[in-house]
Design a binder for these strands. Structure first.
Length: 574
DNA sequence: GGTACCGAGCTCCCACCCTA
DNA sequence: TAGGGTGGGAGCTCGGTACC
């Protein structure tokens, strides 16, 4: 058809946009490539067409997702939230398990804005998401042939993956409850048209009818309702009767069949476990100085306002300085602000491109300690008036020169080198892409055993003869052997290092024990058959949702006027 | 550090073209 | 002639840059 952009061009547009080409430049890139290859393209396309193709691609991807879900044997869901410029957003993914032995498939269900972060709102968001996908599918020719029913999607759910926030566990319980309702509703639907248990069915209908009729005040009240209210009442009556009949049908199943039907597992993101363990270790480390430091503690690194208040003497310094105003984590935070500020116009990120986590930051700082101190001097020298560092720079300089703060940096680095990095590499390595989050029990046990070993014998990490074989989680190479050597060479400068290390590991271990309960201490997981685990497959981490929300921020920044619908379309096309 | 302006990239509205 | 496909132009938002 003349005047219509061909399929090859649509595919090219989607590919280019997925590779990061702005939608306004897809034609320029295509024509430049064609020219270079000596190919003549008949016609052209506009920016508007480019945008439409991407949006259509998103809709087509949504239809494909519904097809996958309708054909799959089971599925799990995962979600995460963030706020961007005062608006809350939720990202949702599903992993569908195909009928055959094909690997699980990730399906991006979209990012939606929401009015708040309550469990009820998030739960409604999930219902709306699946309903919206089915509505779109049913409006398409595919849906005319075989309409999609979100109830059947819900029935296939086997679990939920999220972070460890209490609202997420509550959300998982709400999703599980709704899955239960959908399952019983479908069983009830089958019972309604079945020739068996007819008396039972009639009895349920009569009883439910009476119960709901009493609730609204009797038949006269029902007749006084507007027609749309009457229809809503009738639908509710049918649904509740179906659920009741469905429960009766369920009770006739064998115990083994019931277990398969009811099986649902919530699990938390593995990287959140590590992050929380790091945080707990740091808290415990900072408390140690207060209880046993005998007056020695990391230097206070107060912000500008607290410093002014302390200097004025109006408030005792002890009541101003909080636990988060000193130590290794504080100095990595401050140096992070200095060399990798989240606002592109601030900081010195053109000179340094290194930080990403407290553990890695501590390693980087210790590895190049002299360089960072020299850099701060360079900053001071480059100031036009009086060679004075600003408040932030002075704080960083004080922290880097402070032995107790350096001690904490050593501990953060050792935990990162021994536990965090080997663990994250293990669960994120491409060869482990099919690693099931439910199969991480042995990994968590290994982490706990290794941490206990360090607590009982810190020389595993600190001893001069200690090797990477016994020091790291999997006995592999240190991520940064120079820093390990630096810590050992300077052990005399850190008299509290061993005690602080043990304290940190005790705090982190306690959190690991607590946070790994979803897998290690959960009989649903530990006693599950391989087939049950396969059906409830979920990734070890919530990276997919974290990544989608990160993409949303990047897209908003790169394209200020983009709608989240377009961001969704771009992500769904991938 | 504050202000004004520019430009990039997307969306919306509407008119035109093409085909069945 | 209706309806789908397409592009022109205007408008919006916000990061970047120049200037004071």
């Amino acid at each position: 058809k003349r005047g219509v952009v061909q399929d090859w061009a649509r595919n090219a547009i989607l590919t280019l946009v997925n590779q990061g080409v702005p939608m306004s430049k897809t034609w320029d890139v295509t024509s430049a490539n064609a020219k270079a290859l000596g190919v003549v393209i008949v016609g052209t396309w506009s920016i508007r067409t480019s945008c439409r193709v991407v949006r259509e691609g998103g809709i087509a991807a949504g239809l494909m997702i519904v097809e996958y879900v309708l054909m799959c044997i089971a599925m799990t869901m995962s979600g995460d939230g963030t706020s961007h410029k005062s608006i809350q957003y939720s990202s949702r993914y599903a992993v569908v398990i195909p009928l055959n032995s094909q690997p699980p498939k990730d399906c991006f269900l979209g990012i939606t804005p929401k009015v708040n972060h309550t469990t009820a709102t998030q739960f409604e968001g999930w219902k709306e998401t699946l309903q919206h996908l089915c509505d779109n599918f049913n409006k398409s020719p595919l849906g005319n042939e075989a309409p999609a029913d979100p109830t059947r999607m819900w029935q296939k759910l086997k679990g939920y993956l999220s972070d460890h926030a209490s609202d997420q566990k509550k959300l998982s319980a709400a999703l599980e409850r709704y899955r239960w309702e959908c399952d019983r509703e479908l069983r009830g639907q089958a019972a309604m048209v079945s020739d068996e248990h007819v008396e039972e069915r009639n009895q349920v209908m009569v009883e439910k009818g009476k119960e709901l009729m009493e609730e609204i005040g009797g038949p006269d009240c029902y007749l006084a309702l507007p027609v749309d209210e009457q229809i809503r009442f009738a639908k509710r009556l049918v649904r509740e009767a179906q659920i009741c009949l469905g429960e009766q049908a369920y009770q006739r199943l064998s115990p083994e069949e019931k277990e398969v039907v009811d099986w649902w597992v919530w699990s938390g993101c593995a990287m959140h476990k590590d992050l929380n363990a790091m945080k707990a270790g740091a808290d415990r480390m900072s408390r140690w100085w207060v209880e046993f430091g005998e007056g020695v503690a990391p230097v206070a690194l107060m912000n500008k306002f607290k410093t002014i208040a302390a200097k004025s003497g109006s408030v005792p310094e002890g009541s101003i300085v909080g636990p988060g105003d000193r130590g290794g984590v504080k100095v990595t935070d401050l140096l992070g602000s200095l060399v990798k500020h989240r606002e592109t116009k601030k900081g010195h990120q053109e000179r340094f491109r290194a930080f990403s986590s407290h553990g890695l930051a501590a390693t980087e700082i210790l590895h190049h300690l002299d360089l960072y101190l020299a850099f701060l001097q360079l900053v001071a020298d480059s100031k036009s008036l009086g060679n004075e560092l600003n408040h932030l720079e002075r704080n960083v300089q004080a922290g880097l020169n402070d032995p107790p703060t350096r001690t904490e940096l050593c501990v953060l680095s050792l935990y990162s080198q021994a536990i965090s990095i080997p663990f994250s590499q293990h669960i994120r390595t491409p060869s482990n892409a099919s690693l099931n989050g439910l199969d991480l029990g042995p990994v968590y046990d290994r982490i706990k055993r290794h941490m206990e070993a360090v607590i009982n014998n810190p020389d595993i990490l600190l001893g001069r003869g200690a090797s990477q074989e016994v020091g790291t989680l999997y006995g592999e190479e240190w991520n940064n052997a120079d820093v390990i050597q630096f810590i050992r060479d300077n052990a005399d400068s850190f008299p509290h290092l061993q005690k602080i290390l043990i304290e940190f590991f005790r705090g982190a271990l306690k959190t690991w024990n607590e946070f790994a309960k979803d897998i290690c201490g959960n009989p649903k997981v530990t006693e599950a058959t391989p087939e049950q685990r396969r059906l409830a497959f979920r990734h070890p981490t919530n990276d997919l949702n974290e990544g989608a929300l990160g993409t949303l921020r990047q897209e908003y920044r790169a394209y200020p006027n983009i709608t989240f619908g377009m961001v969704n379309a771009k992500l769904m096309c991938k």
